[in-house]
Every structure is written in structure tokens, then in C-alpha cells.
Design a protein around this nucleic acid. Structure first.
Lengths: 245, 245
DNA sequence: TAGTGGTCTAGACCACTCC
DNA sequence: GAGTGGTCTAGACCACTAG
């Protein structure tokens, strides 16, 4: 056939076709596909186009390719979920609620011992950090308690910034290009100030997200966000696998 | 220059170079790149190779491309973390601990109302599900309480399977190719059977992961995993953005 | 209408790996 | 050595969109 009838592009149509065969089980794990050149002929495209499709399916984890041996349907192993975490203001507004932020503490000081450890700051580094603590509101209800330190070396402009109304997360997001970060997610019992600021009874379960962001190996910010456990849940959407990048 | 000296491939070398410029801030958000053809000439490659690089950076969220206008450095917005979730046995063994699984309940029955709702089973569907509840052990300590239902339509072999020793997660993972799934992560206070099976005092915080897996639109399994909050945390590694797939 | 990105081709050379 | 995937080229046409 010379050309596809109603598909957007050639490789899209082939991609869909191959995925269908794999997820339907018609091509089970371990199945050997025809060789690249043969597939290209079968689908009536050039080898380059076929290669594009097969490369993408390999990146996505559907296929395994080995020189001289051929192309095989992969055995599913690791599952990678993509956890989308927008800034909290967007999250609250997406719920159709008014958003607000109230700053409770602000200080410029050297990082504490535990902060050094968690942010990965070398003991030799003499710099100061901007410490912030505040509450995000959804409507009139506390939505999230945020405790954060910001590297004044990575973000010197933060020193002059007034975060009494604007949450630091979005401010940073718009200015600092981050390259990597790390999440730790755990459940804790709310105690003391955390419980009080979130309007919880002591002992209620909280979802705690600890995020460390860095740019090119240097830490930018370390933030701990506590959500009332009963009122919040993180959503993660699965994809077959992350690409190698 | 006719050819690169010591880089694996042309597009790898260009990819690295462009990423460096973006994350270093030399090309800030909003910066307009030279046109594709110009870049290809500058780097001494064909337009196809250059396009491959620019397409990948666009998929990864570093760039935004618009016909007629040009190519621009993207403003970072949504952060997507890749949450790697291996099966629990691997997780436990990675900690250097012995792994064990103990099945507490097993039943074949129609899904309950709430299970229907959470798994997305149409009321019309008459099928039965395999219900399982068991505890994963790390050494002698309870590591995770798992409550699961499996679609006997999607996985008919599960009916004959004895899960008294082997956890159903890995069994499924090796047999059923999944196409998508969804996570809900929240914190709850342990009560009743959950607390007892995990060896917790009532009221202690638990991390609860609810996962729904499907293949080609049909649900396969719905599982609720409860971890003692104080002893477990999820780790998520950041990447700049997920590709569109 | 003109210029950009989006896609595709036919052919080529190389690298790896099994035989 | 032979056959596979990995990469690259030079050129082409198309689709979208700003002006």
C-alpha cells in the first residue's frame, strides 16, 4: 500500500499497530519480531521510519533489541509511575477553591545540622539559607503546611523577596531551572505545631512530602510539606517505563 | 568540523551541549534558539540529525517549538517525578533482609460495591474476582499489608494459583503485560485488623498506596498496600518532565 | 504568501555479536 | 564472516501559522 488512509503520520499508525499486538498478547513477552528491514517492507515505509518506531517502543520498554539477534517483546519488570506534582496553588485552584498563603516564619541563618544533612550541604560551606514556614489555604481550610530552606547562593534574589503572600514554590519554579530532585513520601502522626497549624487533633495521620531540588549538582531548596492525611492524596499515573534520557 | 572527536554519537554530543546551555542558564527560559537549519549547519550535521535532538529535548520538556515562530527554551512548570515501584520482594531484598509472604484470606466472589467503584467495574459485568489478603515480611517484622482483588477475566490462570507463599504482585507482573495504572497515596491512622496485622498500636500513621492496573482499558487488579508510616518511605527521583508518549 | 517545523525517503557506513 | 541494529546524510514534500 502506498500511503496510509486516515492516520496522522506513518510512524504513529505503525506505533499503534505494534502496541496493539503487544498489549493484546498476540505478541507475548519473548516473541521475536520480524527484522527491521522486513517490517519496513511490510508496512511500506523506509527503514528510517521503521527504526524510529522500534526505537521509541524500546525506549518505552515494550521491546528489547539486540544486534545480530533481533527484536523481541520485553518482559515487563520494573514499573515506573510518573508522579506529577504541580505547585500547590495550581492544585488548589484545580479543585475549584480559593487559594491563599500565610507566612508564619521567615529567617536568614546558617543551616542547622539536620538541614545540612538532608539537603546535602557540605560542612565546609559557610553560606546562609532563607528559612520559611507557612500554610497554604484552600478556601478557609488549611491545605498544607510548608517548611522550606532556600540556598541563597543558588537563588540570591530570594533574599529581597517578600513571601508573606506569594508562596515560595511558584516563585522559585518560575526562576530557577532545576535539573533533578528527590522526593521522600511518608506518613507521620501530627504533633505540636504541625497539628495546630493544620487544624488537626494531635495524632492524626499526615502525609509528609520531603523534596530536595538541585541544579547541576548544587542544592537549591529543601522543602517539607505536610498534608492532612484524610483530606489529601497524591496521584500517580503509570506509564510502562521511563526512557533512558 | 567534519566529525566529532570522542563522543559516542553526533546527536548525543549535541544533546549534551544544548542541555548544558539550558540548565546553566546561558539560555534562559524564553530564549529563542537559532532555527533548525542554522543549528544543523553550526553543528555540522544534517537537518534530520538536528531534528532528532530538538525533538527529544521537546519531548523532555526543555524546549517548546512552534511552526513559523521558532524554537524556545521552555519555562519549567509541572514537575514530574518518576516513582519507581518494584515489587515488594525485590524491595525487601534490596534492604538486605529476608523476604516472606503470609496469606491470610483467599476467596472467589463477586466484587463488592466499593470495589466496583474503585476498580471501575461496570455494574453490568457479572464476573467474579479473586480476593487476597496477606502480609509481606522483612525478616521477622511485618513490612506491608496487602489487600487485593484480581480480575479473573483478565487473569484466568489466577484461579488455580496458590498464593499461600508466593505474593500475587510478582506473579502478575511476570504474566500480565500492563499498559497503565494509577496510584493514590495517602496517610491514614491504623485501625483494627490493619494495626494488628502490622504490629502497630491503634492510631499509628500508615502510608497507604492504592494501585489500579489496567490493560488496554480493562482493569486487571486493584491493590491496597499499607506500610507502617514510621518505617517506610516512598522515594521518587525527579526528571525534568515526562515525554508525551 | 513565505518561512518554519514535521515527516519521510533511499541509500550508506559502522559496530556489535553470534556463528 | 555475515547479518543485525545504530546512526547519519542530502534532499524532498507537506502542514501549519504569522503577517
Amino acid at each position: 500500500m502506498p500511503r496510509a488512509p486516515r492516520d496522522r503520520t506513518q510512524h504513529e499508525r505503525i506505533l499503534r499497530d505494534l502496541k496493539d499486538r503487544i498489549v493484546s498478547g498476540a505478541w507475548p513477552p519473548g516473541f521475536q519480531l520480524p527484522f527491521e528491514l522486513k517490517l519496513a517492507e511490510d508496512y511500506g515505509v523506509s527503514r528510517m521510519t521503521m527504526n524510529k518506531v522500534l526505537s521509541q517502543l524500546t525506549r518505552e520498554g515494550f521491546l528489547v533489541r539486540r544486534r545480530k539477534l533481533g527484536t523481541f517483546v520485553a518482559t515487563p519488570q520494573a514499573q515506573s509511575a510518573v508522579l506529577e506534582i504541580t505547585d500547590i496553588e495550581s492544585e488548589v485552584r484545580a479543585l475549584g477553591l480559593d487559594y491563599g498563603f500565610a507566612l508564619h516564619e521567615r529567617a536568614i541563618r546558617p543551616p542547622s545540622e539536620s538541614e545540612r544533612r538532608e539537603a546535602g550541604i557540605a560542612a565546609a560551606e559557610p553560606g546562609e539559607v532563607l528559612f520559611l514556614r507557612g500554610v497554604h489555604f484552600a478556601g478557609r481550610a488549611p491545605f498544607c503546611l510548608e517548611t522550606r530552606i532556600i540556598s541563597l547562593e543558588a537563588a540570591p534574589d530570594a533574599r529581597e523577596q517578600d513571601f508573606s503572600r506569594e508562596a515560595p514554590g511558584r516563585w522559585l519554579l518560575e526562576r530557577i531551572p532545576w535539573t533533578s530532585a528527590e522526593h521522600r513520601i511518608r506518613a507521620v502522626n501530627a504533633v505540636g505545631a504541625t497539628a495546630k497549624l493544620l487544624g488537626l487533633d494531635p495524632g492524626e495521620a499526615c502525609l509528609e512530602v520531603l523534596r530536595r531540588t538541585e541544579i547541576a549538582g548544587q542544592w537549591v531548596t529543601l522543602v517539607r510539606q505536610s498534608y492532612p492525611g484524610s483530606k489529601h492524596q497524591l496521584l500517580a499515573q503509570f506509564t510502562p517505563r521511563a526512557d533512558a534520557g
